[in-house]
Computed example of a mutant assay.
Amino acid sequence: MTRPLIGVSTYLEPGARWGVWELDAALLPAAYPRLVQRSGGLAAMLPPDAADHAEATVARLDGLVIAGGPDVDPARYGAERDPRTGPPARERDAWELALVDAALAARVPLLGVCRGMQLLNVALGGSLVQHLDGHAEAVGVFGGHAVKPVPGTRYAAAVPEEVTVPTYHHQSVDRLGTGLVPSAHAADGTVEAVELPGSPWVLGVQWHPEMGDDPRVMRALVEAAG
C-alpha cells in the first residue's frame, strides 16, 4: 500500500547548533515526523518559502500538518500586541497562511497543531485570545489536562472519549473563523479543537499529539489523506 505523503511545516531558526556547526536551520521536533510515520504516512518537512510557492507545494502532498511554534502576529487578525505575546515570526506566518489557503482550495486534508490550529482560525477570519492562564505549567515543560469531545464532530469520531492531552500554550481561539465549529473543550471552557464540517478533512487541535502516545488524531489525518 502506498503511504500518503504528509507535509509538516517547520521553524526557521538563526544560529542553531549541532556538532561543530552553528548555522541557520530549518527545524522540526522529531516527534512530528515520528508520529506521521507511526500513523502510516511519509513525512516531508516544509520550511518557510515564498508564499506564492504554496499552491505548487500543496499540490504534491496528500496531507498537510501546520506545526506548533511561536505566537501568531496579532496584526494578522487586526489586534494590538499584548505585552505577553511573543515576538512575531512574520516569514513563517506568511508561508503557513499561504499553505492553509492552498490546502483549503485544493481540498487537501489539513491538521493544525497548537499554533497551527490558531493560524487556521486566523486564516478563516477569526481572532485569538492573546494570553490564557493555566494551560502551560512551566517554561519549556509540557503539562496535561483533559479535553472533552463534542458529540457528532470529526474529532469525536476519532477520539470519542474524554482524554488527557499534552499541552503547552498561552493563547487560544477567540472569535471563530468562518465555517469553523468547536469539536473539543477543556474543563474551563477553552476551545481545544476546531474543524470544518463536511469535506475536505480539516481539524485543528490546541494540544500537542506528537508529545503523547495516542496516534488517533494523526492517524485520522493520514487515513483521510490516503
Rank of each mutant, 00 (worst) to 15 (best):
L128I: 08
V194Q: 06
V163P: 02
H170W: 07
L111Y: 07
M211K: 15
V194E: 07
A103C: 02
R107Y: 01
A102T: 03
L124E: 04
P182A: 15
A123M: 13
A187L: 13
A187Y: 01
R90M: 03
T178N: 07
Q118A: 07
V191M: 09
L180Y: 04
Q130E: 12
R115D: 11
S199L: 14
T164S: 12
R107C: 03
A138I: 11
H131E: 15
Y168Q: 08
L97K: 00
G125F: 09
S183M: 04
D213W: 12
L99H: 03
L128S: 09
W201Q: 12
Y168A: 10
G204R: 04
D214T: 13
E96K: 02
G143I: 03
V139F: 14
P200C: 12
A184M: 02
P109E: 09
A157E: 15
W201N: 12
H131K: 12
M218H: 14
H170P: 07
V173E: 01
E192N: 06
V205F: 10
E195I: 08
L128Y: 08
M211P: 00
A103N: 02
V163G: 03
W95F: 05
L180P: 01
G125I: 11
G212I: 05
L128P: 07
M117V: 09
V173Y: 03
H145E: 12
L128K: 08
V217D: 14
V113L: 08
A193I: 03
K148E: 14
D101V: 02
H135A: 00
P160S: 13
R90A: 10
S172V: 03
P151C: 08
A184H: 00
A138V: 05
M117W: 09
P197H: 11
W201P: 05
H185Q: 06
H208M: 02
E161S: 09
L111I: 11
L196P: 04
V147R: 00
G179R: 04
E210A: 13
T178F: 05
W95K: 05
R219K: 15
L99G: 02
E137C: 10
Q130Y: 10
H131C: 07
E91N: 07
V159W: 05
W207M: 11
D93E: 06
H131W: 15
